[in-house]
Amino acid sequence: MSDNGSLVSVRDATKTFRRGSEEIRVLERLDLDVPEGEFLALMGPSGSGKSTLLNLIAGLDRPTDGSVTVAGERIDRLSRTKLAAWRARHVGLVFQFYNLLPVLTAERNVELPLLLTHLSRAQRKKHVDTALGVVGLTHRKGHYPRTLSGGEQQRVGIARGIVTDPTLLLADEPTGDLDRKSGDEILELLTALNREHNKTIVMVTHDPHAARRATRVLHMSEGKLSQEAAE
């Protein structure tokens, strides 16, 4: 934990991108604390920097300035290799377009993060079965992604995100590509993971209906965050 007891603590984070000679400031001296056990929703207009912020917390990218501390570790200072190992241990990622490997079955997709551990084949299978059980897809584990519906694919994506039992679950518009019903199922699942399995979740979403599931909602605009109480 960081000194103020938050699981995630972003301090003074600035992120600029270079596009040719032009410099784009996406995050401007941004501060964010996410306490353990929170289900945080990040909202805001397109291009406001939500994904950029999520990537910093996930260790997929580094701030141009400022610090990112997760579970007491300054991840902005880790080398690329150390950061990869850190991601494997601490974060589960869920993407808008599921990003499953089409050549692998649901089961093998979920197993991917476990290939980096020292678990035996039998142990890996046990973890995969548990994760698929949590998302309710045990019966489809031998199926390839293209034979699954969008909602089912996203559940496989979530199972892959939680199979290593990570500290943090980060989701970038997890329902963005789903119809209302499937989207609701996914949100139900995330809520359960937060409530019953005490997973800390940060979710980026455009959908106010989805944000309502969160314990806290933050709005992002022009590189800054502003508070808004969850309804």
Partner: peptide, 15 residues
């Protein structure tokens, strides 16, 4: 995209 996902879940550059 697939390699990006592999890296995102923790595969190192060397992997």
């Amino acid at each position: 995209g697939e390699f990006a996902v592999l890296k995102a879940v923790g595969f190192t550059d060397t992997h």
